[in-house]
Design a protein around this nucleic acid. Structure first.
Length: 418
DNA sequence: TCTGGGGTCCTAGGACCC
DNA sequence: TCTGGGGTCCTAGGACCC
């Protein structure tokens, strides 16, 4: 059996751990730039706030109903996520961290999966304050479905066996893991509306409608494991860093600063993974929701020799940016992708040229060590800009309670928060 | 005024090879 | 009029996930 442990309304639950008065009140957490609602408490869901709803459209509703609204605090959520995983792994030695709030666990060796699920749930709640739901099924897809049902029934945990047809027949096909809007439409034309319809449909028709992936989903619903638990995550193949601006940006100089920051952050990511990049893409775009003239463009370049040098990646990114920049547009977003990542230890140098520069290497290491000791952003390259007035909005972020010495919560009145 | 960010996998089609 | 057969590799775009 496979279990899927999923944190309930995860970002909201993280905020509630440190602000318990938010319990049983409507709470939402906004995306970067305070754009959309990306996490909602059950109370907020009941008010009709949809996943991904633009905040400016629901602002009145939130004020009227005294909804607590927060900017996302990824330092906090990332740290809470690690804590939850560290508890789950005590129960199941084989597991896969699927996303920031979900893990698949293999319960193959476990005698009584339901009992284990109950214990996991209680322990995670007690040790972290985060409520989780656990779905158990013979495959990942069925575990996902069981998880969904557990949440709907407010049960906490639920085990789904293959034979439980009555349960499955009530599930809409679009609620099956792996089926999005487009596939749903195609299936609708074939009169396949529920998970049960999908199970009973002829395989060739399914293959035609949704390719091998949909066929795999169908097999998984039959109880045949097609999607393995991946204990050790594969190294990333690409990395992307992009942001919307807090305001529109027209100047090349400001775009350059933003792209410089994305390039440096992307490079930090691959260095942490021990990867080097073979290529680089830069993109810029105007606000697609605006009626102003639209422009978006991207340019890609391959490196003659793979690199993880932030200075080289940054300067290449700036060159690419200059080549696609057009004056007169109001830009809303810029990003940098590092493509075709390779493990650093499989690096092949060039025969006739050497980019390697020991002095520069030491400089980058010094930057990294300063930032890891004193916090990200302590030391940075001048190209990244100082004021960064274009930076994203994050007006309602709570303290980084668990990862920053200056923001640790205090108890009682003896200590004034600094 | 205001609309997120970061990934993966698959497929079709083009360019190229013998 | 009629123009082979069988591959590989790469890329862009589409679909999905959280």
């Amino acid at each position: 059996m496979i279990a899927l442990a999923d944190c309930n309304n995860f970002y909201v639950s993280c905020e509630r751990v440190f602000q318990p008065w938010l319990n049983e009140r409507p709470v939402i957490v906004l995306s970067n730039n305070d754009g959309c609602a990306i996490a909602r408490s059950n109370e907020a869901k009941r008010l009709g706030i949809k996943m991904g709803a633009p905040y400016h459209q629901i602002k009145d509703l939130c004020q009227k109903n005294r909804v607590s609204v927060f900017s996302s605090n990824y330092e906090l959520y990332g740290d809470m996520s690690r804590r939850v995983v560290s508890i789950l792994m005590r129960f199941a030695p084989e597991y896969e961290v699927y996303s920031i709030d979900e893990s698949f666990l293999s319960l193959e060796q476990i005698h009584d999966p339901v009992r284990t699920a109950k214990e996991m749930r209680e322990t995670v709640l007690k040790w972290t304050g985060i409520p989780i739901s656990i779905g158990i099924g013979p495959t990942k897809t069925l575990a996902k479905m069981a998880n969904r049902m557990a949440k709907e029934q407010d049960a906490g945990y639920l085990m789904l066996k293959e034979s439980e047809n009555s349960l499955i027949s009530s599930i809409r096909v679009s609620d099956v893991w792996g089926i999005g809007r487009k596939i749903e439409e195609r299936l609708k034309k074939l009169k396949i509306l529920t998970a049960m319809d999908l199970i009973n449909a002829p395989a060739p028709a399914i293959r035609k409608a949704g390719g091998v992936q949909l066929e795999r989903t169908q097999k998984e619903l039959h109880g045949m494991q097609c999607i393995k638990i991946e204990q050790i995550p594969e190294p990333k193949k690409n990395v992307c860093c992009s942001r919307s601006f807090g305001r529109t940006v027209t100047d090349l100089e400001e775009l350059e600063e933003a792209v410089a920051n994305h390039a440096v952050r992307a490079t930090q990511k691959i260095r942490k993974e021990g990867s080097i990049t073979c290529g680089l893409q830069v993109f810029i775009m105007t606000n697609r929701f605006s009626k102003e003239p639209q422009y978006s463009n991207s340019r890609t370049v391959g490196f003659d020799e793979p690199s993880d040098d932030p200075i080289r990646i940054l300067s290449t990114a700036k060159e690419l940016l200059r080549s696609i920049y057009r004056k007169g547009y109001s830009y809303k977003k810029a990003g940098v992708l590092l493509l075709n990542l390779q493990p650093r230890d499989q690096y092949q140098g060039l025969l006739f040229k050497d980019h390697h520069n020991e002095k520069k290497g030491r400089l980058v290491e010094a930057l990294e060590s300063i930032n890891s000791r004193h916090g990200t952003g302590t030391a940075f390259l001048a190209a990244q800009g100082i004021d960064r007035t274009w930076d994203m909005k994050r007006n309602r972020r709570t303290p980084r309670y668990t990862t920053n010495w200056n923001e640790i919560p205090t108890i009682g009145n003896n200590f004034e928060p600094s």
